[in-house]
Design a protein around this nucleic acid. Structure first.
Lengths: 246, 246
DNA sequence: ATCATCATTATTGACAGACCAAATTGGTCG
DNA sequence: CGACCAATTTGGTCTGTCAATAATGATGAT
């Protein structure tokens, strides 16, 4: 596992040099031949590294001239910001609530039926399937809002929930135990949608996430408590060690 | 312009073959040597093309085994969806309103001062500077919400407003004339923030975008009208031509 | 007959050296 | 001063070779 492809290692080093400001944006970096000598690899490898970097937009290669560092360096489309689970959930509570309100007015009977099925799936399935159904439940409501921009925002929030380690950890910590409460809330949301009641849908969705935020705060509190206890235990042992030595 | 880098052309062709289903996801595509012969290029070039494709996630290269088409082909994060200006504005009205409500509770005096300055800048500047100030005004409020996820969502919406041609066109069509109304609305939003009144801030922000949606509908209506008139004129001329010939 | 082990082979990974094509540079000449 | 040209630099590509690794098939023990 230690050895990746050579060009990959070289590309990573060059990228680091760019990040560190050794090669500021707009500047021209050394020729392939010189880089090959510096990294002690062949010219082909340097070229492969440069191609990989170019494919991601870090540099621009100009034939006969040289390779240049891209001006807008931090252009990293699709990059997720570093946010806390609390922020993600607060944003979801606000945004998905509005999406639900929009959806209440125009959702089709067909989609209502699918939501019904998804709730059932969440009830009696293994954890993985249940999670997928949960996602689909919220995604379906988002799509039913008829607003692609809202759908995009909500999908982005879900990506944060799944791809940011800290956020994922927080969610996983609370998502198991309160399956009962969750099912009840989902049912409430669906009922509001069936009643074509935007305000009720908004409220139900907010309540859903509000409870989630509460659980997260509890969980993180308990975790913090455990950490404190662990530290206390460690310092106690350290103290005992010292006492023993003395 | 016809001749790009060789590897780029090859990569494009391979990507097309994948899209066309000649190499379905999961399958292994021909070895470097065979591809080199087929495309009549060297192995190095094939390798470069494969590296470029791998960098974008289209294929996976396994040493000693072969290169395989990625399973989840359309993985293209950060791509903006195709949405209408109406959808973007509706989403902004809902999401930015909530951000403003959040901000009202915790915004600093310093940021309030900056918002003041930005309104002034919008008042007496050329169009470009004014647009930048507008963007910064909304971004500042978003940041003042203290929720990074909300900031991200709002930034994403602004990208749609600027990078999707149709959306940009719609915004540009209305953003000029109603500078007066816009200034008034911005002032109302700022007042609500200064009063630390979440409900007022939410309401003011919604009103702002609601008026914008109205203007857009008017503009698009007028545009549609012009298009109809143009078509009518053309068919009239065509008719006259025919009549003249007859 | 079955399964584990090992040699074979196919395939990617990396290299050196050469040559080509395009862009840059610097100088010359009008 | 400016236009033109040649030398140099730099990326672009090819051929050929060897190394490293994964898949495959043969072999032998149980």
């Amino acid at each position: 596992m230690a050895e990746q492809r050579l060009y990959h290692r070289v590309a990573e080093e060059i990228r680091q040099l760019i990040d560190e400001g050794v090669f500021p944006p707009g500047t021209r970096l050394p020729g392939e031949r010189e880089l090959a000598e510096r990294f002690d690899v062949s010219r082909v490898t340097i070229r492969e590294a440069e191609i990989a970097l170019q494919a991601v937009g870090h540099i621009e290669i100009k034939t006969g001239s040289g390779v240049y560092v891209s001006e807008d360096q931090p252009l990293q489309p699709g990059q997720l910001p570093e946010v806390s689970a609390f922020e993600v959930t607060e944003a979801r509570s606000l945004i998905e609530a509005e999406a639900a309100a929009l959806a209440a007015k125009i959702i089709s009977d067909e989609n209502l039926k699918k939501l019904d099925d998804l709730i059932e799936t969440m009830g009696n399935s293994d954890e993985e399937t249940s999670l997928a159904a949960d996602r689909e439940f919220h995604a379906m409501i988002a799509r039913s809002s008829g607003n692609g921009a809202m759908v995009h925002a909500i999908e982005s929030l879900w990506r944060m929930r799944e791809e940011l380690p800290e956020v994922k950890h927080s969610y996983d910590a609370v998502c198991e135990e309160d399956a009962a409460a969750r099912a009840k809330e989902h049912q409430a949301i669906l009922s509001a949608l069936k009643a074509r009641n935007p305000d009720a849908a908004r409220h139900a969705m907010r309540e859903h996430f509000l409870r989630l935020i509460g659980s997260m705060l509890d969980a993180s509190e308990q975790e913090a408590l455990r950490a404190v206890q662990k530290r206390a235990l460690e310092s106690r042992e350290r103290f005992l060690d010292v006492a023993r030595m003395g």
